[in-house]
């Protein structure tokens, strides 16, 4: 997977690149409008992370140019503006997703993976991880060929963890993904514990493997 990160804030750009850096993923970065335009013209990417507020231009203009040039890249807008108008404008211009700062890298990764899956498989949308097979359109989960019934939340958690496989995911990131800010953090931590316990058991019962590793109370790692 080839990724272009267009973000003017150096620290954030490096964090994102660092998190995505793994085998099979090529991350390139751009700090401004000019260099981004150049890179887009020269190379093809699977996914572009696009910050709207660039020092030398508006990210939305870049998006328009991209679409006008007939480029097929998937685009996720990164914006500090959580306004409905901007969101709608971005999506109308052909962006595939819109994520508002601040976000957890796990959330961004999950969105990128979802976009990548949608674009690369088209129709036959099966997700395979180890012995776990997920049919995305029907939300059917099979472990070692056995159908496992998951609740909506458990299914969400599983997809989230598979997208971030091998990474430690903080409980805060998970809580925000599952509930946004509907419930208090302390309550959501209890729920996360329960959901993961149940999911872990369902997967282990059918595969004999324990996929989840608890990391010092801060979160979980899926591998």
């Amino acid at each position: 997977m080839k990724l272009l990160i267009i973000e003017d804030e150096r620290a954030l750009r490096e964090s994102i690149a660092g998190y995505f850096q793994e085998e099979g993923v090529i991350c390139e970065t751009s700090a401004d409008y000019a260099s981004a335009t150049e890179k887009i013209a020269l190379y093809d990417y699977d996914c572009i992370l696009l910050d709207i507020g660039l020092p030398d231009g508006n990210g939305l203009t870049l998006l328009q140019e991209l679409k006008a040039a007939g480029k097929e890249e998937g685009v996720i807008i990164i914006s500090a503006r959580n306004s409905l108008d901007d969101r709608i404008t971005g999506l109308n211009l052909g962006a595939d997703d819109y994520i508002v700062k601040p976000f957890h890298l796990a959330e961004l990764k999950a969105r990128v993976m979802a976009l990548f899956r949608r674009r690369s498989f088209r129709g036959n949308n099966q997700l395979q991880y180890d012995c776990i097979n997920i049919d995305l359109p029907t939300m059917e989960v099979k472990v070692d060929g056995n159908l496992v019934t998951l609740t909506k939340k458990e299914y969400d958690i599983l997809l989230y963890f598979i997208a971030n496989k091998g990474k430690v995911i903080s409980k805060n990131a998970l809580a925000e993904h599952l509930w946004k800010d509907e419930i208090d953090l302390a309550d959501s931590f209890d729920f996360i514990y329960t959901h993961i316990k149940n999911l872990r058991k369902k997967l282990a019962d059918n595969s004999g493997k324990d996929f989840f590793k608890s990391v010092y109370g801060i979160g979980y790692k899926f591998s």
């Binding site: 804030e9 954030l12 964090s15 500090a80 601040p102 890298l105 903080s170 990131a173």
Partner: peptide, 8 residues
């Protein structure tokens, strides 16, 4: 966003 991503 920088703080969060660094923590992540």
């Amino acid at each position: 966003a920088v703080i969060t991503s660094k923590l992540d």
